[in-house]
Amino acid sequence: MDHTKTNRIVLALLGLVLLGGGLLVLAGGADIYHRWNLTSPAGWPLNASGKVLIPPADQTRWTDMSWWWPASIAALALLLLLALAWLLAQRRRHPRQLTVTDSSEEAVTVSNLALSDALTTDLNLLPGIRSAHALFYGPRTHPHARISLTLRTGTTPEQVLAGLHDAVEQARRSAGWDNLPTRVDLSVARHSPHRVE
């Protein structure tokens, strides 16, 4: 299972837990159990509008203890750091150097920018392409490509598909990679209206 799918599953489960908890709090606060003659979940304290989720005795149970406030602040700080680490991990990473294999089967380190520029140049030479930009992301030994193409007006994706495939395949073979997963974002150039006098 890849990184993206794992993140989506974790986020979906977290969302379901938060949604379920929110609905339980809403049901208790709006007194839905009493109005609709429903039974609240076993042990759920918030089952009427006059009740609270955490009883006052539990709210102040440890506040007089010397360890309470430092432990609370440390736990919240740790939670914040974990959330920030997860957020930063979602950013697309593009390495400065990529490992390619030369004709003698030796690994060579090449600038990501140089390889990206070479692929971008090949893409810009394709008929029907107004502008192109390519960049490699992921591990330096097994990267994937992210390509943005702007098509000329009147050009369809089908017309550039073969040339796009050839350019990516040439980049893969030149670098000696076994595969090169590629994501392509397409857009079509729009003509700005010109005023005629």
Rank of each mutant, 00 (worst) to 15 (best):
A114L: 15
A89H: 09
L78V: 14
H94K: 13
L53E: 00
L87I: 11
W44D: 02
L19Y: 04
G20I: 14
P56M: 02
Q59E: 04
M65C: 12
L16S: 07
L16F: 09
L84D: 02
E106M: 15
G28L: 01
T99L: 14
L82R: 00
Y33I: 03
L19I: 11
I32G: 04
D117W: 12
A77K: 01
Q59R: 14
R35W: 13
V108Y: 06
A89K: 09
A85S: 07
T60S: 13
G28R: 00
W36R: 05
A107Y: 15
L84V: 12
A30Y: 05
A71R: 03
V108G: 10
R96P: 11
A114Q: 13
A85T: 03
G21N: 13
A74E: 02
W86M: 08
W67C: 03
T60K: 09
Q59V: 10
V110C: 05
L78M: 14
S72E: 09
L113H: 15
P56Y: 05
S104D: 15
W62S: 10
E106K: 15
A42E: 13
L113W: 14
G29K: 11
A77V: 02
G43S: 03
Q90F: 07
L87S: 06
S111I: 08
V100P: 01
E105M: 06
L78Q: 06
A42W: 12
N112H: 11
T109W: 13
L81V: 09
A114T: 06
A30T: 14
L87T: 11
A77I: 09
D64T: 12
K51S: 08
Y33T: 00
V17Q: 13
Y33D: 00
S49G: 01
G22K: 07
M65E: 14
W69E: 05
Q59D: 10
Q97C: 02
I54D: 01
V110S: 02
S116L: 12
N47E: 11
V108S: 09
A83T: 03
A85F: 04
S40Q: 03
L113N: 12
I54C: 03
R91I: 07
P56W: 06
Y33Q: 06
W44G: 00
G22I: 05
L84R: 07
P45T: 00
L76Y: 00
S66H: 14
P70C: 04
L78H: 07
L76R: 03
S111D: 15
A42Q: 13
L24D: 06
V52Q: 03
D117T: 09
P56F: 05
E105C: 12
S49A: 15
I54P: 02
L113T: 15
E106R: 15
W36Q: 14
Q90K: 06
L84M: 10
S103G: 06
G21C: 07
E105Y: 07
P70T: 09
H94Q: 15
S116P: 15
E106S: 15
I54V: 12
S104W: 11
P70Y: 07
A71D: 10
V25R: 04
D58C: 00
G21P: 06
V108P: 12
L79S: 05
G43V: 01
P70N: 08
I54M: 00
Q90E: 05
A48V: 09
Q90V: 09
N47V: 02
L82I: 09
